[in-house]
């Protein structure tokens, strides 16, 4: 059991030590964006495990971002509490709409989740008294610094503090999602995806499992929304629109949705790619499209599938 976790531990070390090798706030910023995308993609994948392709992440991000910002600004909550509350609010919202939504299958479910996201945007624009309307909310305060035994451990006046916070969140998230997937819960989800009627005949409440996976996935979207709003210090209703969610979907497809490695590889690759392709900036959408097409036609398992095949071959070579 412990051997399996070695790669993960190596990854942890890499992530935690990376800032020392980098110069410049901008690079750290890119890594922060990458980690955000990893968390969002991984949580989207959890929802997909049960067979539902959800595009509601955008809406949950919006909800989480506004909830956190408003709790801190209007109700003087400390950041840490608002952060958790944002996730919980997204969880319960997903639970609420999840039950009716689960009655719809296939692509129409995805469409309904798109409409849900659009509605959150409209609501944020309309409810000016609460959300500041289309102008959004600004001057959202950064988290207070964290002290451990009187020593300042995390300071948020610079990007590095945010980096470490997000790194910890990401590592925790990946661990949690992995444990969920490997557990009975995860196995049940996968079974439901393949043969839900059969599961029902075994007495499994498939709707409950589906809603639960939807709600847990949305929890992570919610906390990411909160992180975003305190990192950027300003949010607008359209910040997490349709296109944003589509990009997360693309990260997942490119990374490969069969393997838990998929979201990490997909999100990291596609977030960092535009930076490496800086001279070809206007071609970025074409590159994305090309990659998508290549995946569909040649690599249905995604990049993670490719990596796993390579490592398998390497393993076999040693044997």
């Amino acid at each position: 059991m412990s051997r399996r976790y070695i790669p993960f531990l190596l990854f942890c070390c890499l992530v935690l030590l990376l800032p020392f090798f980098l110069r410049g706030a901008y690079h750290i910023h890119i890594l922060i964006l990458t980690m955000m995308n990893v968390i969002l993609t991984a949580s989207l994948r959890l929802i997909l495990l049960s067979g539902q392709m959800s595009l509601a992440h955008g809406g949950m991000l919006t909800v989480g971002a506004y909830t956190s910002a408003l709790l801190v600004l209007k109700a003087s909550f400390p950041f840490w509490l608002a952060f958790i509350m944002a996730g919980l609010f997204a969880f319960f919202l997903a639970w609420l709409v999840g039950y009716p939504f689960m009655r719809i299958r296939g692509i129409y479910f995805s469409i309904v989740t798109i409409f849900f996201s659009e509605m959150t945007v409209l609501l944020a624009q309309q409810w000016e008294g609460l959300t500041g309307g289309s102008g959004g909310i600004y001057n959202i305060p950064r988290p207070d610094s964290v002290h451990l035994f009187g020593v300042k451990v995390l300071d948020f006046s610079s990007r590095t503090g945010f980096y470490y916070l997000l790194a910890l969140i990401m590592l925790a998230t990946l661990l949690v999602l992995h444990l969920l997937e490997d557990s009975r819960f995860g196995l049940t989800l996968k079974a439901i995806r393949q043969a839900d009627i059969l599961c029902e005949s075994f007495g499994v409440d498939t709707t409950l499992y589906r809603v639960l996976s939807f709600a847990i996935g949305s929890f992570f979207a919610g906390i990411m929304g909160s992180f975003y709003s305190h990192y950027v210090t300003a949010i607008t209703p359209e910040a997490f629109g349709f296109l944003f969610t589509v990009y997360i979907l693309i990260y997942m497809i490119v990374g490969g949705e069969k393997s838990p490695l998929g979201p990490i590889v997909g999100a990291a690759f596609l977030t960092l790619l535009p930076e490496l392709l800086r001279p070809l900036k206007s071609f970025t959408p074409f590159v994305y499209a090309g990659i998508l097409l290549a995946i569909v036609y040649f690599l249905p398992e995604g990049l993670s599938g490719l990596i796993l095949k390579w490592t398998e071959r390497l393993g076999r070579g040693h044997a």
Binding site: M53, G106, I107, V246, L249, I250, I253, P285, F286, Y288, A289, G290, L292, L293, I295, V296, P300
Partner: peptide, 17 residues
Amino acid sequence: PDRAFTISLALILILQN
């Protein structure tokens, strides 16, 4: 349908750009 969905996503990107 999943793969068709992905292809049409790519088509959206291509046609728009």
